[in-house]
Write a protein that binds this DNA or RNA. Structure first.
Length: 305
DNA sequence: TGCGTTGTTTCACC
DNA sequence: CGGTGAAACAACGC
């Protein structure tokens, strides 16, 4: 699931290989990708030079000459593969289709050819991802309207005061609060589980019950998880199963395996409707907090007794 | 075959 | 009114 580290890796890959390149042609096999776009086709990028690549939260933006910006959200399963003229590859995002396999793959929805022989492929097995093409200013306004909080890592990252302000008034599970991109931008289901495990906090802990003195450690843990993910160019998780590299991720996608810290069996629970992995020994529930409930069925209500 | 999957929006409720 | 929980939505693999 492309979160900050995966999307940032996409951005760097574009910066490394496509800046200054001109679009020769493109093939969009799923016009559905443009369902939110103000411009109905990608025709305006043909003949245009790539000026840069930016990222805000999990949104990737490619700037073209002519005040044109293509914004992309990978959602569950987006992947960007760049194959250069010398056949070298830069692949980031969802690890399926196989980065070493043939492109375009079955689930490749967009191919863009550049003047130096490079090809750019956007694949998405789920097709939840989207692409918006619009004047740079309009994309800017759209991104601002999202009211994202500070980035988890990078320039001007989230600080402990923001974390405290964002958590101390809320009774929702701390995991749910940390997934709110308006509090801080970049965490998704993988890295939030990793951060809470590192900080030894149970994901169901009400946000306002996380002790103040644990906040610096939580901030460190968030930044550790995102940095570690970025270092490896994104975590490898396919169909909820992790394929750890250097033992990362430590808990996410590893139900039934031994916690790398204490050896206790990692369990999977649901927190705020999300599959959540944790070590019951490293991350005990605080006194007085009810264990996470199973997902309530549609239309049912909690029973008061 | 219906469930699980995510980020985001929307909506009902208190 | 704002905080909250949860459904809806997008599409597909298992």
């Amino acid at each position: 699931m492309p979160e900050l580290p995966e999307v940032e890796t996409m951005r760097r890959n574009i910066e490394k290989s496509l800046i200054g390149r001109t679009v020769v042609r493109y093939e969009l096999l799923s016009p559905f990708l443009l369902r939110h776009s103000s411009l109905p086709t990608l025709d305006p990028i043909v003949g245009k030079n790539v000026l840069g690549a930016r990222r805000r939260a999990k949104i990737l933006m490619i700037d073209f000459e002519g005040d044109l910006t293509m914004a992309m959200h990978s959602m569950l399963a987006g992947q960007i593969a760049i194959i250069r003229a010398d056949d070298s590859r830069l692949v980031a995002g969802h690890p399926f289709p196989s980065p070493t396999g043939e492109f375009p793959a079955k689930m490749t929805h967009l191919t863009v050819w550049f003047d130096d022989g490079s090809q750019f492929y956007f694949s998405d097995i789920r097709q939840f991802g989207w692409i918006r093409l619009a004047p740079t200013e309009a994309i800017q306004a759209f991104v601002e309207s999202m009211a994202f909080g500070p980035e988890g890592i990078g320039k001007d990252p989230v600080d402990v005061d923001t974390l405290i302000r964002g958590l101390s008034r809320r009774r929702i599970p701390v995991k749910t609060a940390l997934l709110d991109q308006k509090l801080l931008a970049g965490l998704g289901n993988i890295y939030v589980d990793e951060a809470l495990h590192r900080a030894k906090i149970h994901p169901s802990t009400p946000a306002n019950q996380v002790p103040l003195e644990k906040m610096p450690a939580l901030l460190d843990a968030i930044q550790w998880a995102l940095t570690e993910g970025l270092r490896q160019g994104g975590a490898k998780v396919i169909h909820t199963k992790a394929y750890p590299i250097d033992n990362f991720p430590e808990v996410h996608g590893r139900e039934g395996e031994a916690c790398p810290v204490c050896g206790t069996t990692i369990i999977k629970v649901r927190v705020g409707q999300r599959g959540t992995y944790l070590c019951p020994n490293c991350q005990p529930l605080p006194e007085g907090v009810m264990p996470p409930q199973g997902a309530r069925t549609r239309g049912s209500r909690p029973v008061d007794e």
